[in-house]
Design a protein around this nucleic acid. Structure first.
Length: 548
RNA sequence: GCGCCACUAGCUCAAUUGGCAGAGCAACUGACUCUUAAUCAGUAGGUUCGGGGUUCGAUUCCCUGGUGGCGUACCA
């Protein structure tokens, strides 16, 4: 094994086993030597011709790499670029007129040969530029390199002058080129969409093959930057609070649990930032916000990922009206910057953010839908009413929970235009302040757009006595078996007892917001690396499979 | 979680009433000095997701496990 050439050592050493059980061999003088048997590969993987085809493709490329390595540096350290593809297109005229030499690096996306010439689209982050190679210009060896030894998927830098082909394709007439890196695995096929699974699982391939996917993620990045800019403008302070928390809170959800070895203690991944941000308000920071990953140990689907990005902001002296205004300013700004004239299209629905957002009361909306005043109804009557509307009511649901179900069923789907829904029932909002006028309600709003919830906000509860009672209610729920109820956070209560000013707070799911702005209904389209189940069990089979 | 459906070459997909598994792209060999889904001629590539069962014979039928899609429940 040690006597083998460099390519074989490379292949045994670092060809990843991810997903595919490739067993590697190197061909020596036409004879196959099985490397897998000599490596520490588990014996189970030594099936005769497993993954033969892919294996063969990789082997071929490794052989070419060995050959190429005799002529050029395989992994050079840097490349000096003169222009990006965008810049080449923008300054084409001047560059062509001056016959200026350009240096352009990127990935080879195709090869179209006609004997002694070769057309090679090279792709950088922004797009493709075609490179034109002529044997007469490059000489025998160099042309052999690009024609035979360099593959689709490899990275090269080309140097030459710009021109237009007969078919009017902007191209670089290559005078010299530099090999930059090898792809020993083939790129996916070029003119069919990859499956959603493959795109999500192998994002590097999705990004390499689909420029629209690149654009979508770049848009996400710009949206988040813009939100930061907005908060700077609004004079909020960006802060960072702990991901690992001794107690979780600020939302109703099951947490991920982890363990700190040195302290020998259980820690939780945060489900919300809320309780820490409020401590900062207690401390005297008047306007704070955080854009952060939260973690919730719950189901996954088209709109849920176990880790997701949440915006939370708090402002001292504000109530939920102030937060409503802030939220409206922010979304109008986003719609103006990322939509068309302040309008967005989502799933064929058009939403106009130029007009003042509708503001409706939770109970009013329900009254309108049902034709009855639900405030006066007891649980039993409500259950009957809900069933009448086809809403499934489970045993043990409280009055407010039933109202919430009714609302989700009857009202939410119709809230297409940006709409603030205000003044919710109390039970579902343990951190919100009681409504200043109406008994049994809290000062809260949710913003709905295109039928789903985008933001949630309260006049924050700041009376520590009331907060303690609410926590105790939660504790009772927890003891009754509700594993989403919040535990009592004594340290947070202590902070509040120190005196918390009137405060408005708002939380917004950033992934949902981005989905709205890029018009997709799948969260995987806006997460670079959505959570996926492992593709294959490594040892594959008999021990776990088969027996029930 | 639960229900329904899917899984075939590196990628995207065909086909088999249960009887030698097929195409395009990618790869390889050759031809071609303006191609752009380049073209033309040829070659190679498969434990049909894993395990078990029924059968003379299973990729196809049955059971079971895995992964995915859609729906549903909880939630942002």
């Amino acid at each position: 094994m040690t006597s083998m050439g460099s390519s074989t050592r490379i292949c045994a050493g670092w060809v990843p086993k991810v997903g595919n059980k490739i067993h590697l061999s190197a061909r020596q003088g036409g004879k196959e030597t099985d490397l897998a048997n000599q490596d520490n590969t588990p014996a189970a993987e030594n099936g005769a011709s497993e993954q033969e085809s892919l294996h063969h493709l990789i082997e071929t490329r490794l052989e070419k790499m060995t050959e190429l390595g005799k002529q050029v540096t395989l992994y050079p350290y840097a490349y000096e670029r003169t222009h990006t593809s965008t810049e080449l297109r923008a300054t084409e005229e001047a560059l062509t007129a001056a016959e200026e030499k350009v240096r352009f690096p990127g990935r080879i996306m195709a090869k179209r040969g006609t004997g002694k010439t070769l057309f090679v689209p090279i792709q950088d982050e922004w797009g493709k530029i075609q490179a034109y190679f002529r044997k007469d210009d490059l000489g025998e060896d160099k042309f052999h390199q690009i024609q035979k030894l360099i593959d689709i998927g490899d990275w090269i830098g080309v140097e030459g002058t710009l021109f237009r082909t007969r078919t009017d394709e902007l191209s670089i007439k290559v005078e010299d080129f530099t090999f930059l890196s090898k792809a020993i695995r083939p790129l996916p096929e070029k003119f069919h969409e990859m499956s959603l699974e493959n795109k999500s699982r192998r994002r590097h391939l999705d990004l390499a093959m689909n420029l629209d996917s690149r654009e979508r993620f770049k848009l996400r990045s710009r949206i988040i930057s813009d939100i930061r800019e907005f908060f700077v403008q609004e004079e909020f302070l960006e802060v960072e609070t702990p991901v690992l928390q001794p107690l979780y809170g600020g939302a109703t959800a099951r947490p991920f649990t982890t363990h700190h070895n040195a302290l020998d203690m259980t820690l939780y991944m945060r489900i919300a930032d809320e309780l820490y941000l409020k401590r900062l308000i207690v401390g005297g920071l008047e306007k704070v916000y955080e854009i952060a990953k939260d973690f919730r140990n719950e189901g996954m689907d088209r709109t849920h990922n176990p880790e997701f990005t949440m915006l939370e902001c708090y402002a001292a002296y504000w109530d939920y009206h102030g937060m409503m205004d802030l939220t409206e300013r922010m979304l109008r700004r986003l719609a103006l910057r990322f939509g068309q004239d302040g309008k967005l299209t989502y799933g064929g629905l058009e939403m106009d953010f130029n007009q003042p957002f509708a503001r409706i009361r939770f109970m009013d909306a329900l009254a309108e839908k049902t034709g009855q005043d639900l405030m006066a109804m007891d649980t039993e009557k409500l259950t009957g009413l809900a069933k009448g509307f086809g809403v499934v009511i489970k045993k043990g649901m409280g009055r407010d929970k039933i109202l919430d179900e009714l609302f989700s069923e009857l009202v939410e789907p119709e809230l297409v235009q940006p709409t603030f829904v205000m003044d919710h029932p109390k039970e579902l909002s343990p951190l919100a302040k009681a409504h200043r006028e109406t008994e049994g309600l809290v000062e809260r709003f949710e913003l709905f757009i295109a039928g789903f919830e985008v933001a949630n906000s309260f006049s924050e509860l700041n009376d520590p006595r009331e907060q303690r009672l609410r926590f105790e209610d939660q504790k009772a729920l927890m003891e009754a078996g509700d594993d989403e109820a919040q535990p009592i956070d004594e340290e947070f209560l202590q902070a509040m007892e120190q005196g918390m000013p009137p405060t408005g707070g708002m939380g917004m799911g950033i992934d949902r917001l981005v989905m709205l702005l890029v018009d997709t209904n799948n969260i995987r389209d806006v997460l670079l690396f959505p959570h996926m189940r492992p593709e294959q069990t490594d040892s594959g089979n008999s021990t776990e499979g088969g027996t029930s």
